[in-house]
Amino acid sequence: MVATFTGKVVLVTGGGSGIGRASALAFAREGAKVVVADVAVEAGVDTVSKIEATYGEAIFVKTDVSKAAEVKKLIKKTVDTYGAIDCAFNNAGIKGVSSSTAACTEENWDRVLNINLKGVWLCMKYQIPYMREQGGGAIVNMSAAAGLSNCLERFPAYTASKNAVIGLTKTAALEYAKAGIRINALCPGYIYTPMVESEIHQNHQNSDLKDLMANKVPMGRWGTPEEIAEIALFLCSDTASYVNGHAMVVDGGLVA
């Protein structure tokens, strides 16, 4: 079943590249007016340009999701521009620096948790009041397969943040279910984004590491940003009208 967002206003954080860009384009393709938020200005503006050239209407708002004032401004700009905020994909996140738990620096810990967890909380903090006022909405928070049983060695802050996003999502889903706001988490596995591609090339192990990781997946391949985008659309759509407080795994069978 095709999700339609005609007349809907959708906010996507981290919309400058990877899953965020693919999702912004997919929401626009299905008729949504899209607000693209990212700390990377050039990338965010480019996503908006692609939407305007192919599907329709979008704006870019430079936003650091770890800063309350910027998130508050983002949500206000969304409502002031389009009059509503029907759906939000709180996707912005980082992996952080690779290190063991004992070697993880406080700086790295704080940066990862501030963006991946505090950023999701701040987005919901300012999205929910508008959604309550308008009678409902749908929120999808980005977690990861690492937030479930497939924990990621040498990325303690990332793993902790993604586990916490699931707990936060479920708490909020319970609190606002009767207000007509559905809140779910999305848990991708190995997705071949530009960030991952750059990371692999920096390690000078591009072909071996890419294949090694793909072989860990029962389906034998990486996922694509576009595949994750389609699940974000589903969770925000009326098709998923009875899905709430759920952590949806999209990983080719990795967690299983």
Rank of each mutant, 00 (worst) to 15 (best):
M195I: 13
I139V: 14
I85T: 02
A229T: 10
F60Y: 13
P129L: 05
G189V: 01
Q127C: 14
W121C: 05
A84Y: 04
K210Y: 05
A32K: 13
T63H: 10
G223V: 10
T47I: 07
L174K: 15
S98K: 08
A229F: 10
V165T: 08
S207D: 12
S49L: 15
E226Y: 04
V9F: 00
Q134P: 14
T239I: 14
N203T: 12
V36P: 02
R29K: 15
C123P: 14
I139F: 13
D86F: 11
G223C: 07
L152S: 13
V2S: 08
K76N: 07
A145W: 06
M219L: 15
G93R: 11
E133I: 08
E70N: 05
H246S: 10
N141Y: 04
C187Y: 06
S237I: 02
K216I: 09
A179L: 09
A164C: 04
T6N: 12
A32I: 14
F89P: 12
V249Y: 08
G18W: 00
L148K: 14
P225H: 00
L212T: 15
A240R: 01
S143H: 11
L209M: 15
G223H: 06
K8L: 12
D86G: 09
V71L: 03
V79M: 06
A3R: 01
K72A: 09
E133N: 13
M1Q: 08
V10L: 06
T159P: 09
Y82G: 01
V250C: 02
E133M: 11
A24L: 09
K73N: 13
V35D: 00
A232G: 02
N215P: 01
L117H: 02
D110S: 11
G135A: 12
S149M: 12
E107R: 05
S149G: 15
M195D: 10
I75Y: 04
V36A: 01
Y126R: 03
S98I: 06
L233E: 11
C187N: 09
L122D: 10
N114Q: 11
Y82H: 01
E30I: 00
Y55Q: 04
V112W: 01
S49M: 14
G180K: 07
M142H: 04
A84C: 02
T6Q: 12
V79Q: 04
Y158I: 15
T81I: 00
G180C: 05
S99N: 11
T239P: 00
E70Y: 11
M248N: 06
A138S: 12
P129M: 06
G44V: 03
Q205P: 00
D211N: 14
K125C: 07
E57F: 14
A172Q: 04
V61L: 05
P225T: 03
Y130Q: 12
W109Q: 12
